[in-house]
Write a protein that binds this DNA or RNA. Sequence first.
DNA 1: TCTGAATAGATGAGGCCTGAAATGATCGGC
DNA 2: GCCGATCATTTCAGGCCTCATCTATTCAGA
Lengths: 164, 164
Amino acid sequence: MNDAVAIPVDRESQASRGDHEALRLWLRLLTCTSLMEASVRAELRRDFDCTLPRFDLMAQLERHPEGLRMGELSRRLMVTGGNVTGITDQLVREGLVTRAAPPDDRRAFVVRLTPAGRRQFERMAESHEAWVVRLVGGLAAPERRQLFELLGRLKRSVNRARSH
Amino acid sequence: MNDAVAIPVDRESQASRGDHEALRLWLRLLTCTSLMEASVRAELRRDFDCTLPRFDLMAQLERHPEGLRMGELSRRLMVTGGNVTGITDQLVREGLVTRAAPPDDRRAFVVRLTPAGRRQFERMAESHEAWVVRLVGGLAAPERRQLFELLGRLKRSVNRARSH
DNA sequence: TCTGAATAGATGAGGCCTGAAATGATCGGC
DNA sequence: GCCGATCATTTCAGGCCTCATCTATTCAGA
């Protein structure tokens, strides 16, 4: 058994002939995402001592300099509100984001990147994009475009099925 | 804003024009997986009071009636060994799997489904497949095949990039 | 046979995440 | 102005997951 070569054992590789194709599609999708996520997570940790959820939250804020409310972060990151509370708490403690009370709604908070947060995010974002480019670089540009298009259709299909 | 229709706000929808296509591809992939995973998780919980990691572990065992060692489970599920230990402990406590000592290696354990575990898994697997079929049903069969093929290439690309 | 390296699994601290319940604030209709 | 419904957020218990570290076992070579 040679460890220098990637071991092709994962959920999807083991699907048996009897499995229907929808299931195999799902397992392969899951495998791709898991592999990429593990890779990105490891590099983010190694080079910046940062976790993926923190990076994702900061990425949303970077796109919205005016700030986002907790609930909007929750929707965009597709995680529950309680979770956003926890991660935001940490980032506030570390001085990377601020929680401000908007004048018009005392229930809400607006989260924004601090200058330090923005600087740190920008350092990470550059590496992050390079990693992702490398991971998908084995596909030719037309293949990537086609995959992007098909995933768009899949997304619509899933959203339709989910909304009954 | 009409909540009866699925809200199209997620990580990927917000990608700005400046983002490179590799990054958008990654975000869209992540969105699709998250959506499907959330859906499957919710139905598994609602109908069987079971979590996805437990289901996944049992699914591996179902494909291998002779049993799998902890380390093999870990590789196939793409999670760390410590994690497999925890989930297996629970399933053993609930009588769904067994841990047996193989005669040839006293370091290892072989995990197998019990008859009760197999029965429970089979009940879940049927529903599970139906959900997945429904989620991807918005794509025509040729589109699904093409997506499957492109994801296979992506997987190889990622594996190549990961092994330096 | 002995010994050091590698391997299988367990353990523990810490972070992520969910679902359910709780707290306050806002809003619409009366 | 009041009241119930709704909404934004927090809190908490519990499960998942990683990394680092530990123990016990196996293996390869002197």
